[in-house]
């Protein structure tokens, strides 16, 4: 049981790291949002699951935190993307690399 929990903890931290790496490596702001949102959402959920397996008595609050992240993180990202799009931030393209 502890082994599975530890595996989830490391997996979650790894996905958080990959998400941050994507935020640094991607060429434009929309791709950065994509990399950031997906990887960090799953990373935090896996980490929360790992903590929950270590401490089964914390699950209600962990579930609240997890549901909150799962619901609000995509909404925040979409709102940001919409704001950038309406403000005229261009989409990067291989043929004509943006600014």
């Amino acid at each position: 049981m502890t082994l599975i929990a530890d595996a989830f903890l490391i997996l979650g931290a790894l996905f958080c790291f990959l998400g941050a790496l994507g935020v640094v490596r991607m060429p434009d702001v929309y791709n950065r949002i994509q990399a950031g949102t997906k990887a960090v959402t799953l990373g935090s959920l896996a980490l929360l699951l790992g903590v929950g397996l270590h401490h089964p008595d914390w699950w209600p609050k962990l579930l609240a935190v997890g549901l909150f992240i799962l619901l609000t993180n995509p909404i925040g990202s979409s709102t940001l993307a919409r704001a950038f799009y309406n403000a005229g931030v261009p989409v990067w393209n291989k043929r004509r690399p943006g600014p």
């Binding site: 931290a13 702001v29 950031g36 959402t41 990373g43 935090s44 980490l47 940001l80 931030v89 600014p99």
Partner: peptide, 29 residues
């Protein structure tokens, strides 16, 4: 690092957003 190098404010906001969720996970840990 992304927050530092930017280059424009949208990039910095995205970096802040990502950092906030990582910080939430960190506090849970």
């Amino acid at each position: 690092l992304r927050l530092w190098i930017g280059p424009r404010s949208p990039d910095r906001i995205v970096a802040t957003d990502t950092l906030a969720v990582i910080a939430t996970a960190m506090i849970v840990f």
